[in-house]
Design a protein around this nucleic acid. Structure first.
Lengths: 300, 300
DNA sequence: GATTTTGAGTTTAATTATTAAAAACAATAT
DNA sequence: ATATTGTTTTTAATAATTAAACTCAAAATC
């Protein structure tokens, strides 16, 4: 068979809803109106009307579409569970790779991944084609794909790229006028860091959320689609590593909070040199942590 | 039907060549050896051998494959002209967009592009899936794709991203030791710029090549897959604009050469402040040129 | 008579089915 | 033992298929 009639099914159900809100004997609006309202083509509207007619829910003659009886729940068509969206698929793919430490060089095959994630082969193809542009996977000469990423070189390069982007964000941030909302956000973040620091022993798990919030704030001052796209990947990878590298979590988070605070203070003082220095210190340590967690996993 | 037997046909022809270079009564090598030499799977080798056998060109019994008679040109299978490679396709796609000023928001349809470029639908799908990751195209809700890029915002963001990357490269370059090969390359580039400047009136078209060479040299000191990937796109777009924006080409190139020379001199003098300033001056003007050429094309 | 709406036919595109090709495995000959 | 072949299984590219969108002419309504 060819494409699914999922679009038809959901449109039909929406049409039932429209019928429900009408009285028996009322006329349904014109095909074009329905098509517009339901955001589908007239073709779908017509086939849905046809089904309503043959199910004796409406009487359809020319442009008269009279509601004969109110639809009941038994009339609804069950919608096939919607497949994962592109973003969900991507998320689950990374989750799989990071959680199971799928090693670089692993050959990926489309059919197997398609089964594993319960999505059409097509979607996997597109995902891989996209990731190949980020240098994460590679098409092998005689068909098939091969996972490249998540070697330590990858982590180093990603970290360095992250430094590049965040240092740029910091430089840009320091040129913003005092009335810019970022300064308030930084003040708030400073308070949140101090609050968490006070109760860290019992809440050190909360840091990863605060960490993301902080870095997002810094990066938010740069509006650039290329930077944004890169940050998506960076966030994903760093976050996953935070999630399961549990060694010395308390100590690491305590150190990170102090580094953040230094960094925030330097920015609030509009001190360019100190800000960059503090940013570098934190980003370098972050890179080391990522690298170390990769090593630990490799030899675990 | 499913996939073409193009691979088989070309393998068969190559096998005929091998037979031609042998004498009647000779034995063909083992299947694995043939497969390796011809860079195809044994499956193909075996089906080609089968055809040779049934065409009475060889006698095949177990591991004896005896050449019975020499193949003639009539035995050759005609091969379908080979399709474009992924990179060629990408190149031609950008060429089309930039040359015909395909406006942002244009709906792209896979079947039509497939015909236009003479490649299977499949390849177009993959190309678009990849480009969607760069924010150049977008999948539309009701199927199909839509071109996003090449608005002036895109040009601005691309230019700014380029600045970010090249300034980073400059900073990194200045930390390299005197024995690094980049310094010789810069000296050579300086000479080339001066030579071209002397004869610019008659050879101003040669600048775009030198320009690419110069920027590639600067960027070559950064080894990072994300940076590299971004630079591919940047190079492509800037180069195309150079290619057909012919207004004031002589003046623009003369100015650019002077900017490059200032920049090179500052780097050779290991002057960090001057290098960055010169780089910024050139990159800012470059951005303006790109923007202007976009405007001109839009209202032409 | 102009406009809206419908009917029918055509085109486009997503997905499945199919087949070529590759890979894996097992058996046999050297 | 090792090299080679025979067989089976798996994978991936593409053609066929069908849902959905689009187009245009005819008919109905105002």
């Amino acid at each position: 068979m060819a494409r699914t009639d999922e679009r038809f099914r959901s449109a039909y159900n929406r049409l039932l809803d429209i019928c429900s809100s009408m009285d028996i004997g009322d006329q349904l609006p014109a095909e074009t109106v329905l098509a517009e309202r339901m955001e589908v083509s007239r073709t779908i509207v017509r086939s849905a009307l046809q089904k309503l007619d043959s199910d004796k829910l409406i009487q359809w003659e020319g442009r008269n579409k009279t509601l004969v009886r109110k639809p009941q729940s038994k009339h609804r068509l069950e919608a096939a569970e919607s497949a994962l969206s592109t973003e969900e698929l991507e998320h689950r793919f990374f989750e799989w790779i990071l959680r199971f430490d799928v090693p670089a060089g692993t050959s990926l095959n489309v059919a197997q991944l398609s089964r594993q994630f319960g999505v059409p082969v097509h979607n996997i193809q597109e995902l891989l084609a996209g990731l190949s542009r980020l240098g994460l996977v590679e098409r092998r000469p005689r068909g098939g794909w091969s996972l490249l990423g998540f070697t330590s070189e990858f982590a180093v390069e990603l970290s360095e790229f992250r430094m590049l982007l965040e240092l740029n964000a910091v430089r840009h941030l320091l040129t913003l006028p005092p009335e810019h909302e970022i300064w308030q956000r930084l003040e708030a973040l400073k308070r949140e860091h101090e609050e968490l620091k006070a109760v860290l022993k019992d809440h050190y798990h909360d840091f990863s959320l605060l960490d993301e919030k902080f870095h997002s704030a810094i990066n938010s001052v740069v509006r650039n689609r290329f930077v944004l796209e890169a940050q998506k990947l960076i966030k994903l990878i760093f976050n996953y590593h935070y999630m399961w590298d549990k060694r010395d979590e308390l100590e690491r988070n305590a150190a990170a909070i102090d580094e953040h605070l230094e960094w925030i203070d330097a920015m609030l003082a509009r001190d360019e040199v100190q800000s960059e220095a503090a940013a570098l210190r934190h980003l370098r340590r972050s890179k080391e942590t990522l690298l170390q967690s990769l090593r630990v996993h490799k030899f675990a």
